[in-house]
Amino acid sequence: MIDAHHHLWDLAAVHYPWLSAKGVSRFFGDPSPIQRNYLLPEFRAEAAALGITGSVHIQVGAEDPLAEAKWVQSVAEANPGWPLVQVVHCDLTAPDLAQQLDVMAALPTVRGVRQIVGRAPGEDAQTGTNALLDDPRFLEGLLQLSERGLSFDLQLIPELMEKTARVLAQAPRTNVALCHAGSPHDRSPEGLGEWRQRLRWLSDLPHVWCKLSGLGMFQHRWTVEDFRPIIETCLDQFGADRCMFGSNFPVDSLYSDYETLLRAHEKLVPDSQRSQVFAETAAGFYKF
């Protein structure tokens, strides 16, 4: 079993501005309980007890993305009994992108890049990351990823799916992992209906996969039934061969423990699809 989306951090080794900022609420809530070291032994103890045997580390806002990538590489090398690969951050619009990618790709654990397009409406208005979709350099960067055999982790909100799909359609050789099921932030029946319709723009692209992850970020006091329409829609639109489980720990640890989260996903994924969702899809996508 593979956890296809989690984070680690050592605050003494790498600087993360958002983890040092005090009293700042984020779109996913109050981060103060996780503004501490979160290292592989802690994550592994929870995950391995439930059958997880490997994982994908996703970049998480380090001030120096290369320093973060090198640190994750060192963690992987120090723990050969735990298969660990990583998705790093690069600005796909940077003038020296080719050089950045060459340096990152030289690290044996690197499988892809994440540059966040959208987090939540409020934060997006401040960060301006939505503008990436109108920048021709962003598409050029996506094309450079496929040239190096790297994938792209896509985080965005439903309102951006149609425009994003038009960009991704021009880079059909770059495999894309949609983070957090596309962040359905409006959990009303109407909101989920709009997310479901917009999701089709992405699920219709054969080079886009979907992560069943981060579902607690927009609904903290969730139940299994709250997740049902999201997980069932993703399985219906993408198929189990393009869906993979991710815990989004430690961020989603703000709302539940690891076992509660994993069991909720297991309950909603049919038995016949579990081997794909919890192992095979991620193993193939991230080249374990």
Rank of each mutant, 00 (worst) to 15 (best):
A131G: 12
P158E: 01
P172T: 05
P95Y: 06
S203T: 02
Q155I: 08
R196M: 11
R228A: 08
D153M: 01
G216A: 15
R111A: 07
G216M: 02
A181Y: 00
T164G: 08
E147F: 00
W222G: 14
L92E: 00
A125S: 08
Q170N: 08
A106R: 14
C210V: 06
A131T: 10
Q197R: 15
L202Q: 06
G128V: 04
F218H: 15
L192W: 07
R119Q: 08
L132V: 02
Q100R: 13
R137M: 01
K211E: 12
Q115K: 14
A169G: 15
F138G: 06
R173N: 12
G182E: 02
A171H: 02
V176E: 00
A105Y: 02
Q99M: 10
R187C: 04
W209I: 09
L168I: 06
R119N: 12
L199E: 06
A171G: 03
P206V: 08
G214N: 09
P158M: 06
L133Y: 01
R221K: 11
V117C: 05
T164F: 00
A165P: 06
C90D: 03
L212D: 05
A125L: 14
Q155F: 03
F227D: 01
P206C: 11
V167K: 04
L192F: 09
V117P: 02
A120C: 09
D124C: 11
Q144H: 14
G193W: 04
L142Y: 03
D186Q: 11
F218Q: 10
F152P: 06
P189Y: 08
C210I: 01
